[in-house]
Amino acid sequence: MASRRRPRGSSSSSANLAKHMKEMAKAMKEQAQATTLMAQQLSIGDRDSNIPRLEAGQTRTNFADFKMIGPPEFRRALDPDIAKEWLAEMEKVFKIFPCTKEQQVSYATFMLKVDAEFLWHGARRLLEDARTDISWATFKEAFYKKYFSLSVRESKEIEFLQLRQDRMSITEYIEKFERLCKFFAMYKANSDEKWKCMKYQGGLRAEVLTAIAPLEIQEFSSLVIKCQVIEECTKKLALERSEAFKKRQLNQESSQQSPQKKAFHGKLIRRQP
C-alpha cells in the first residue's frame, strides 16, 4: 500500500505552536525570576538597617524624581528672612514628595551651594563627633543657628514682643505676627496654642480686643477668623457713624444759614427806594 502523505500545513503549524509554547515558557520563567529578585530586595531592605524604612503611605523614590520638582537652591544670605523662606519652601516640597526623614536631610543639604554647603559640612562634622542623630529636626536647628546669630534672634524676639496692631489691618497684623512668631518659637518651649492666642490678643487695637477678649478663644485659627469678622463689623459701624455725622452737620449748616439769608433779604428790601 502506498503510504499516506501528511499535509504540509499541519507540520508547519505544529512547529509554530511548539515555538510559541517555548517563548511563553521563557517569558513566564523570566517574570518569575524578576518577581523573586524583587521580593528578595524588599526583604533585604526591611532587614538592612542602612536602608531607611518607609513610613505609611510612602514609596521608594530617588534623587532624580526629587530634582524634577525643581527644589530651590540656597547660598549664604545675610537676610534671615531669605533663609527662612528657603527652609519653608523645602518643607513644602517634602509635603508632596514621598521620602524618608533621612532622605529629606540628604536632598535638602544637596541644594546648599557655595558658602552654605561649606558651613553645613563643618556643622555636620561637629554633630557626627558628638554622635548626634542627624534628623530633619537636627538639620533645621543647625541651620537656624548658622543663619540667625544671637543678635539677630534677640532683635527678632524684641520686635515680636513689642508687636502691636496699631494702624495695620488684621490681615497685615497676622502676617507679621506669624513671621516673627516662627523666629521666636524656635527658641521658646512654651509657644503653645494658648500662649500664642494670648500674645496675639495683647497686640490688638482696643475696639477689636474689647469684642474678642470675652470669647476666651484658645485656638489660634479660630481667633484670627473672629478678629477678621469683628474688624469688618467695626469698619461698617464706623462708616455708618461717619455718614450719620455728615448728615447732622449738613442739617445744622442749612438751619444756621436760613435765618441769615432772611435777614439779608430784609435788608435788601429796606434799602430799595
Rank of each mutant, 00 (worst) to 15 (best):
Q103M: 02
E117V: 03
T100E: 12
K101T: 11
V105A: 00
L119S: 15
T61A: 00
H121C: 11
K101C: 12
F110T: 05
A88F: 02
D48E: 07
M38R: 12
L42T: 05
E102K: 12
R75G: 07
M28F: 15
T59D: 10
K95Y: 09
K101I: 12
D81P: 11
Q33C: 05
L54G: 05
I44L: 10
F97N: 03
K92V: 12
L54D: 00
M111T: 00
A83M: 04
Q104H: 02
D46N: 11
Q31H: 00
P98L: 13
K84W: 03
T36R: 05
G45E: 14
V105T: 05
L112E: 12
M68P: 06
A56H: 05
L37V: 00
E102R: 14
A88D: 07
I44H: 12
A27L: 01
A39Y: 03
F118K: 10
Q41L: 14
M90P: 06
D46L: 10
M68E: 02
A83Y: 06
E89V: 13
D79C: 08
I44D: 07
A27E: 03
K101Q: 01
M68C: 00
K101W: 03
V105D: 00
A83T: 05
V114L: 13
D115Q: 07
G45D: 15
L37Q: 08
M68G: 09
M90A: 11
R125C: 01
M90L: 10
A123H: 03
W120Y: 00
T109N: 06
A116I: 06
W120R: 02
R53T: 15
Q58L: 10
Q103H: 04
F94S: 01
L78V: 00
I82M: 06
H121L: 09
E102G: 14
P72A: 01
R75A: 01
